[in-house]
Design a binder for these strands. Structure first.
Lengths: 238, 238
DNA sequence: TCGGCTATTGGCCTATTGGGCAATGTCTCG
DNA sequence: CGAGACATTGCCCAATAGGCCAATAGCCGA
């Protein structure tokens, strides 16, 4: 039983066509869930509640959560376990913990695992609002870069292993002629690969190419995986 | 029977000419200080102790600390205050807290401020060792990038404002001709600036240039610094 | 075995870059 | 005012990069 209540009560000011952030809240205590929901709705957030971590994780559209508020102690999965599951799933949503009797080790573990805040009940309404606000703000900031990284990795995956080799050398500032000698090929060949790389990556210049690769953190993929077709979009580790 | 502590057992193996990390420890309790020192020394770390945060911060060579272990509660500055002071000073050393009666809010604050760990006394020897070890390892990893960033920023600072404008456009993938039109100058002029930028930044190609700028996170400096300039409709000369 | 994809090259031609040399202007600091 | 740093341009030339068209080859799935 999950009391899903998509916000619509507190109508977000229609003046701004912006997206209303949706906060997903998990707590086994119905009273807390209701209180938190009321609180967040007043702050113009959309809210979805879950009585357990299992229920949260079972949602097919969990990727759409903009912020996840977890209770630390719950029957079944604990908040930390839920957080871990989210991490493993590569979910980028910021996590905030709330706990009645949280201990230092737990809070430290949560923070080390990337939680953005850890509130102890009872907390002031403003504390939660501020935490959610900053969490979403931060998330917003990184989401753009995130998307670009994703797109770049996507395009990068289309590159041939040979093309990656050429790309690697290009990023080292070598010119066609040098690369040709290095790879034992004709300069013309390198030119072609180079051209293809730029086409595939959707850039029109070497500078743009280097920028996108660096920004997407794909430089590492080139270092070792010259022939391997691997390109994990790895990131997020703070 | 005879516990002959062979010196070589605890002494850093002379075989590796590597640097012995130095951990700076702050605690008002002499006993704790001694215990921690013994512990870290056994793990082959160099150690320097301080009875208060003020004493630590007063050290002229504080930049050389590889890891800083702070007690949370101390007369005078608290550990959190010391951490804050370190942050303001731009000190990159990783910080680890140890505390006897730490509370959740404090530990959360410490972690949010960038602490790498927060141990509660009493803790197992291995806990501290592991914390220090991973802290230093992480620090090591970022130090290289850190240094490069520093050098790049150094070189970057030598660029003229005009050169930065050109650089900015270059990173957007534009060619000399386009930039010339954009800035209302002759292509030759752009060529010259471009050449100077490459010379000053110590790179021989556009790709290298873009790479260094991105890696050093200097892209942002351009976004604003360049825009701050004026539009100069170029009709002013006449 | 054929068609499609990738790798490689050559030839040819145009567009861009990269630099050298020289000359003007502007500005700021002694 | 003169020295030095910066910004600008022109002319000229060599080196590269970019592309188009065409051709040879190896591999793989239908």
């Amino acid at each position: 039983m999950q009391h899903v209540m998509t916000a619509s009560a507190v109508t977000p000011s229609a003046e701004r066509a912006e997206f209303t952030p949706c906060v997903w809240v998990v707590d086994d205590d119905r009273a807390v869930l209701d209180a938190v929901t009321r609180l967040l709705r007043c702050a113009d957030y959309s809210v979805r509640t879950f009585a357990s971590g299992e229920l949260l994780l079972a949602q097919p559209d969990i990727e759409t959560a903009d912020c996840i508020v977890l209770d630390l102690r719950m029957p079944g999965m604990t908040g930390l376990e839920v957080q871990d599951a989210l991490l493993r799933a590569g979910n980028p949503a910021p996590v905030i913990f709330i706990s009645a009797r949280g201990d230092v080790p737990s809070s430290v573990q949560a923070m080390k695992a990337g939680a953005l805040d850890f509130l102890t009940k009872p907390f002031h309404a403003s504390e939660l609002i501020v935490a959610v606000q900053s969490a979403i703000a931060r998330s917003r900031l990184s989401s753009a870069a995130q998307a670009e990284r994703s797109r770049a990795a996507q395009l990068f995956s289309l590159l041939t292993s040979r093309e990656r080799e050429v790309l690697k050398q290009l990023l080292q500032g070598k010119r066609n002629k040098e690369i040709a000698k290095e790879l034992g090929a004709a300069e013309k060949t390198i030119k072609v690969h180079r051209s293809r790389v730029q086409q595939k990556m959707g850039v029109r210049s070497l500078a743009e190419l280097a920028s996108r690769i660096e920004r997407a953190g794909l430089r590492e993929c080139l270092g070792a995986a010259g022939a391997v077709g691997e390109f994990q979009t790895r990131e997020d580790a703070q």
